[in-house]
Amino acid sequence: MDNYPYAEQTDNELVRLSLSDPNQFLYLSKRYEDKLLRYITRISKFSRDEAEDVLQEVFIKTYYNLNGFDPDLKFSSWIYRIAHNETISAIRKKVARPTVSLDSEDLKNFTDSFDLSRDLDKSFDRKLINQALSKLDDKYHEVLVLRFLDEKDYVEIADILKKPVSTVGNLILRGKKLFKEEYNKLIINKNTK
């Protein structure tokens, strides 16, 4: 995907370059544009335009705070944290309940990760998966999105959400269980109708 100059550069090197020349920030933001836009739409109810507005603010805030980036943290965790905070702030302003919108690739990642085919023994129903995810409390919802859709490891999720690693582990475990319960309920309701 990195079909632009500096494709070989690490994030940290691009941060350093961006600080001396704002034009280089373009390459850094390009690297995260699609990922973050998907992340924002997954954890919010925002339309594409709204999500893009949030993403703009994420990049502006990232550039503004670029000197505050500490290489002891992964740059991706740092920018996801900014995106997370900015999205939550935008959701609060809009007073919207976050929900999830899964595309085909998301759906495959999610069902594979959860072993839904084995556990639920059902053909996947995207609408029901969306509904089940939307019914989860925000704290479970956001860790499941980061773990199974953005494929972040526990430490990265801990850094993004600023939560202890063990808490992230517990939230994922509990979130998976709750998701399966919700999904099962929806399947049963659907079949009894």
């Binding site: 373009l26 933001s29 544009e33 699609d34 893009e52 993403l55 703009q56 990049f59 502006i60």
Partner: peptide, 12 residues
């Protein structure tokens, strides 16, 4: 999507 990175750079 729109070229958000370019828009951001112009804003900066």
């Amino acid at each position: 999507n729109k070229n958000i990175s370019q828009i951001v750079l112009e804003r900066i």
